[in-house]
Amino acid sequence: MTDAAPTLVVENLRTHFFTKAGVVKAVDDVSFTVGKGRILGLVGESGSGKSVTGFSIMGLVDAPGRVVGGRILFRGENLAEASEEQVRRLRGSRIAMIFQDPMMTLNPVLRIDTQMIEAVQAHDSVDRETARRRARDALGKVGIPSPDERLQAYPHQFSGGMRQRVAIATALLHKPDLIICDEPTTALDVTIQGQILYEMQKLCRDSGTSLVWITHDLSVIAGLADEVCVMYAGRIVEAGTVDEVLDRPLHPYTLGLIGSVPSRNVRGRPLAQIPGMTPSLLGLPAGCAFRTRCGRADDACLITPEISAPLPDRPIRCFHPVLAGPA
């Protein structure tokens, strides 16, 4: 599965938040690998730690949070131990990030050209005119009509989908090796979502860029990603290729997630739900964090399950994998 030289290897990453109420283990022992040109889907409910994983890779975890353990190997360089200036040089040039809400990611009082030119000049010492040309070309590439004019505009003169395209164009300015996409299509219309997914996939294929796609939407992952990691309460509970995980989920949580996606086959019947809600990370139940919501839990689940592989290349954290498969 892994390439000879993977773009990103995350090993035993732990990001904790030291709050007044206690230590929140937002990311707890997370490991995954993204090969060159591959797309990894990171799936989970709100609060499962998937966004914090993305910010940890970018070195953008805000206080009181901190990466407390593990390694983030980006092309062999450990970002978890790199200096702030080293990480800053990589941010935006080799690793880019696209955020969830395009209405919030662009500064409302600065023109698009200002915001894109500064991104070019942060890493390459080129004059304004060259930087501007590169910004214009990037806008054109993500399908923004008359980019020369649009560069003069302010963010509020763009629609949500267009703003997300601007953000994507900004991320692409330096042809990064890795883009972390934190639910970039969640706030958009379904049609726009489709267009953006298509374009991102194409860009990836054309330029060999790797993607980490963070989302709660399994249907997005199904059409986009190569591999998928399912996160729950700060841990990866199941990983594997998209086809295998979605066709034959082993973890009861993954099964629950798949069951709660509306589909044509179950029309007229009530939608399956996972009972309960994501536990607060401050008061996780002892043992398996999913224990209290799981139909298969028993006394064995009082101990935290280690990673096991009931099937080849299918690591999961569960004592009672769903080996029979969904009907």
């Binding site: 970018m58 953008l60 800053r88 040089r89 990589l90 941010r91 935006g92 040039s93 880019a96 990030m97 955020f99 809400d101 919030m104 990611t105 662009l106 500064n107 409302p108 600065l110 200002t114 915001q115 500064e118 991104a119 942060a122 890493h123 953000a167 900004t170």
Partner: peptide, 22 residues
């Protein structure tokens, strides 16, 4: 705390420019 500041940091801008302009 706004996303545009985080996005500016994600672009790799120096903190001087983020504070002085954004």
């Amino acid at each position: 705390l706004q996303d545009y500041v985080k996005f500016a940091r994600a672009k790799g801008l120096r903190s001087g420019r983020i504070i002085g302009v954004h």
